[in-house]
């Protein structure tokens, strides 16, 4: 089960409304490479993981990603909580505002609602871990691009933390893949799928 802890993993305290920046940060809430997809991907893939280390890692990283989802939601909320209608218009936030006002809705920066079509649970251990490594790189890329666009140092501070987490997770998934490969037939790592063939 999951138990709520009434704090963030890393402090988020933004004072100035900035709907233009909120629009791009939002992509890490419900975009194709965002934290919602990350948490659901890992927490769903873990059921067919064949080894103790992999079940543990996917549970622990998947849980951390839920914490990141909350951090990104907090960023978007704080960037939009005190905005005026003038701010909405000037910040190009009107298309989002008309449907969601200042609510936090899982969609990409471009307006596509979050979709499970952006992630995979293949049930194949090597394919899943390889997807997870790619997912960490794609999220890292999005954070790089947010840093290029950010004009608020307090937002950049949080984004740098989240970006660094992708790099650590990539390392751990890489190690998980090594642990998996070491346990396969060394002449043919694809001989079986250890997540299905017993």
């Amino acid at each position: 089960m999951f138990v709520y802890e009434k704090k963030l993993q890393y402090p988020v305290k933004i004072s100035q409304p900035n709907p233009r920046l909120a629009q791009v940060v939002m992509s890490q809430y419900g975009g194709p490479d965002g934290e919602l997809g990350a948490s659901l991907r890992y927490l769903s893939q873990r059921y067919t993981m064949p080894y103790d280390e992999l079940r543990g890692l996917l549970t622990d990283i998947g849980t951390e990603e839920l914490g990141h989802l909350e951090m990104v939601g907090t960023l978007v909320h704080q960037l939009t909580r005190n905005m005026s209608v003038e701010d909405v218009k000037r910040g190009g936030y009107d298309a989002y505002f008309v449907d969601h006002t200042a609510g936090i809705y899982p969609q990409s920066a471009g307006g596509t609602p979050w979709s499970a079509a952006g992630m995979q649970v293949s049930g194949d251990t090597i394919a899943d871990l390889t997807e997870d490594m790619a997912a960490e790189q794609k999220a890292r890329k999005t954070y790089d691009n947010i840093l290029r666009l950010s004009d608020d140092p307090d937002v950049s501070n949080v984004i740098r933390f989240l970006r660094e987490r992708e790099i650590v997770h990539y390392q751990r998934f890489g190690e998980a893949l090594r642990l998996t490969v070491e346990r396969q037939n060394q002449k043919n790592v694809y001989a079986v799928n250890p997540g299905f063939d017993k």
Partner: peptide, 21 residues
């Protein structure tokens, strides 16, 4: 954002120097 200096690889080599809390 990491306990491990060996994994601390910030964008444009600009890592955080402090946090608000």
């Amino acid at each position: 954002g990491t306990l491990f200096p060996g994994l601390d690889l910030p964008f444009m080599n600009m890592g955080n120097r402090g946090n608000p809390y």
